[in-house]
Amino acid sequence: MTLEAYLLVGAALFSLGLIGALSHRNLIALLIGIELMMNAASLNLMAFNRFVVTDPTTGQIFVLIIIGLAAAEVAIFLSIILRIYRAYHDIDAEKLTKLSG
């Protein structure tokens, strides 16, 4: 598979993540969409790492960092979801309107 093919797969994955992130009202579904987009980025990095970069450690480390950050992010995100659920008994993003004027 060529670089272009990998990039296209990444773009497709990103688009799917985008659909997930934009169309759902459930916070968890949103999170899933975001995760998909991050993974699309990872895929791109890995592909570039393989086809363009001379030192192959760079891309891998980037991806590892992304994975680490994703873990941190998910931890926070999920705890927030739990907190919200406790406060609202719902995790529908559109019902969280307390801050809106």
């Binding site: 992130a21 993003a93 801050l99």
Partner: peptide
């Protein structure tokens, strides 16, 4: 700016 963040995100994209 209805607080619908997904919309912002969509437009941003």
């Amino acid at each position: 700016q209805g607080g619908w963040m997904q919309l912002y995100l969509g437009w941003a994209i």
